[in-house]
């Protein structure tokens, strides 16, 4: 029997998706009949959403160049004393080129921005699903999803994995991720394990070349946060984030099923 005190203490962990399914079920049962704890959960969810608005300070473009230079063993000494205007002009061109490339490199890194968003959305969707369930994937039904994604959200989607006997599409929710339009799809297998697929417009983002896994002919980027595994790949100007709590084989099966349908 979960008390209100215990329930409210668990809510931050619940929001983070790091509780066992058994405890989530217990909390769900308590929350279903306790208005005070429901209010606590709603307030904590609202705070989590507001924490997404916390300012992020992007690193200045020249900082990367400055540090890279130091790491290579060259000490930054500023402008030499015996400087000529020609030398200065040439140096300015080089520095601008370095700064521009550093800026591009900075913007290429999706890890610090989109992956936490993908896992956070995953946790929220899973929690919502476990606590309240989902009626369906929208008034148009799942078959209309690719067209909606393409026409309404401008995402380059012509087809999607819409479920089979093993894996069911449970829900679809449009959302804004860092001011970009996107959609998160929630899938559940017959054992109740839930995974999510976040699709978001990201023309300026490149997936890092390292940390790739080979699944069939595909090589998605792979990372892990808490117990969640995240696969990232690009399709035209759309970035795809598959989030799941799965072992190697489960993850491979899940990815191939979803990726091959797209």
């Amino acid at each position: 029997m979960v008390t209100c005190h215990a329930c409210q203490e668990h809510i931050p962990r619940l929001l983070r998706g790091i509780l066992s399914p058994a405890l989530v079920a217990e909390l769900g049962s308590h929350l279903g009949g306790c208005e005070a704890c429901q209010m606590e959960l709603a307030e904590e969810q609202a705070l989590s959403r507001r924490l997404r608005d916390v300012a992020r300070y992007p690193s200045p473009a020249h900082l990367r160049a400055r540090i890279a230079q130091q790491l290579e063993g060259r000490t930054w000494t500023g402008i030499p004393r015996l400087v000529t205007w020609r030398w200065l002009a040439a140096s300015a061109v080089v520095l601008l080129a370095v700064a521009a490339s550093a800026l591009v490199l900075t913007r290429r890194d999706p890890l610090r921005t989109f992956i936490p968003e993908a896992t956070r959305n995953h946790r929220e969707m899973v929690m919502q699903h476990e606590l309240f369930g989902f009626p369906d994937v929208g008034p148009w039904g799942s078959a209309e999803l690719p067209r909606l994604l393409s026409e309404r959200l401008g995402l380059p989607v012509t087809s999607l994995f819409l479920g089979d006997s093993e894996l069911v599409l449970m829900a679809a929710r449009p959302l804004l991720v860092r001011d970009r339009k996107g959609m998160v799809l929630l899938y559940a297998d017959r054992h109740g394990w839930v995974s999510s697929l976040l699709l978001v417009s990201a023309p300026d983002i490149e997936v890092p070349k390292g940390s790739r896994l080979q699944f069939g002919t595909f090589r998605p980027y792979h990372t892990q946060t808490d117990s969640l595994r995240v696969l990232v790949w690009k399709q035209e100007e759309m970035a795809c984030f598959l989030v799941a709590q799965a072992g190697d084989q489960q993850l491979a099966d899940l990815f191939l099923k979803i990726r091959r349908a797209m």
């Binding site: 992007p58 690193s59 990367r64 890194d109 890890l111």
Partner: peptide, 18 residues
């Protein structure tokens, strides 16, 4: 190792600013 450190630059700078 240098490449890995540089990959963390944005996050490190963000915390440093805070």
């Amino acid at each position: 190792f240098e490449r890995l450190v540089l990959e963390h630059l944005d996050g490190l700078y963000n915390l440093a600013r805070w």
